[in-house]
Amino acid sequence: MAISPRYTREIPHRYRLEAQKFECGAVSLATRYVCPDSDCKKSKKITLKGTGKILTYTIIHIAADAFAKETPYAVAVIETDEGARLTAQVVDCNFDDLKIGARVELVFRKITEEGASGIINYGYKAVLV
């Protein structure tokens, strides 16, 4: 399993939804030196509002061990209102209410914990709005 610094350095986007807006207009939640769709290297930090919509989704029935106790759970590709794309679990919902285009809001949640004595990892999940 990975050690704590790997998680610590991801805190800005996972805890606070800090993203980058490149001068070309593209928005990336992932930290990048270069825009993935242009050669633009200049960006400023923005904070995502956390609202967006589902582009596609699935219900995971077979998971990696770290998530096995949570099955079945929903995962979706989400586009935020600022245009950032991300993958997140969709929680506190009836699976039947999930649909492409559904509005969601990102919330701060526990993601995993590293065994009995490891650190607890937090991040974003989505809820239907």
Binding site: L29, A30, T58, I60, I62, Y73, T87, I111, N121
Partner: peptide, 16 residues
Amino acid sequence: EYEAYNGVTFPGLYAM
């Protein structure tokens, strides 16, 4: 960092 961390599996990606 941005997919597997949040619990998505490979079958999950292709399912989407």
